[in-house]
């Protein structure tokens, strides 16, 4: 019944698709082929491909600290965001329902204050009173947590909303479990998808964040890339490519997880009252 002729659809898909693919190809070539652009032709297309530029940069003694710093910041930010939001959203769903609206509006404020304004405000407010926020590497964590707040809040909120929370908590508590046990053994397993989604997104955001770390003069992976671009363009391009691949893999794994359990929570535990 749905026998539509497709006329303009394929051209649109193909043109837009090309727009998305060409920059990736160009980037790969730039990162891995040692043939000047002016000499690139049909016969040199496959010659002199190498990952030496990338390897040079990776073995650069400034790369590893930058990379490790970004990874550490990512992990710590994920932990802070989860530690902050899990109990809060749980309580908002369980008891403090009147505060849900306020909590959500507050989480959305981060969209109104762009990263550049956030870092300017934070350094204006705390540079003299609480200097570690501006001066130490891990002072970035609170700012990154704020950046992640809007999507983290919504993801976890949706995760809790899909649970039959009262039944779960009451069942667990009446069986003699402490709050801690309830949290660890009942809630967290049921919220796996939401927690993983939040963690992956937050990690990806931190790995790519530039505005804040560059303004506070921190040597994270993105600021390193910009700095290395002038010195070793090919290597910097290779690192950028690596970051892209990492992000893409992260998102693909995420898609898998979400697909596997479309509404994992509501299906697995149907304890009908």
């Amino acid at each position: 019944m749905n026998k539509r002729r497709t006329t303009w659809e394929w051209p649109v898909i193909l043109v837009v698709g090309a727009f998305f693919i060409v920059p990736m190809l160009a980037m790969t070539r730039f990162a891995m082929q040692r043939v000047p652009m002016s000499l690139l032709g049909r016969d040199t297309l496959f010659s002199r491909w190498t990952i030496r530029g990338l390897m040079n940069t990776i073995s650069d003694d400034k790369f590893q600290p930058a990379f490790l710093l970004s990874v550490r910041l990512g992990i710590v930010t994920v932990l802070v965001v989860l530690a902050l939001l899990l109990p809060t959203v749980l309580w908002l769903h369980l008891r403090a329902v009147q505060w849900k609206m306020a909590a959500e509006v507050v989480s959305l404020l981060a969209y109104v204050v762009p990263p550049i304004a956030l870092v300017v405000g934070v350094s204006g407010a705390y540079r003299d009173t609480v200097p570690w926020i501006v001066s130490t590497n891990f002072g970035l964590v609170p700012l990154y947590a704020i950046l992640c707040l809007p999507f983290a809040y919504r993801t976890l909120d949706a995760g809790f909303a899909a649970l039959d929370l009262h039944t779960l908590v009451n069942a667990s508590r009446s069986l003699g479990a402490s709050w801690q046990q309830t949290f660890r053994k009942v809630l967290i397993p049921n919220l796996r998808t939401a927690i993983l989604t939040t963690s992956f997104l937050a990690f990806a955001v931190v790995m790519g964040e530039f505005a804040i770390s560059s303004l506070l003069l921190k040597r994270t992976l993105p600021t390193y890339m910009v700095e290395a671009q002038g010195r070793e363009p090919q290597g910097a391009m290779g690192v950028a490519l690596l970051l892209l691949v990492l992000t893409t893999v992260l998102f693909m794994v995420l898609g898998r997880i979400q697909k596997k359990s479309p509404t994992s929570s509501s299906q697995e535990i149907r304890i009908t009252p």
């Binding site: 160009a26 980037m27 070539r29 964040e209 530039f210 391009m237 950028a240 970051l243 892209l244 992000t247």
Partner: peptide, 18 residues
């Protein structure tokens, strides 16, 4: 989903290369 979250430095590099 991936591309909408891209941006930042790698994107700029990709376009400089293309």
């Amino acid at each position: 989903g991936v591309a909408a979250n891209l941006g930042g430095i790698p994107l700029a590099f990709a376009f400089i290369a293309s």
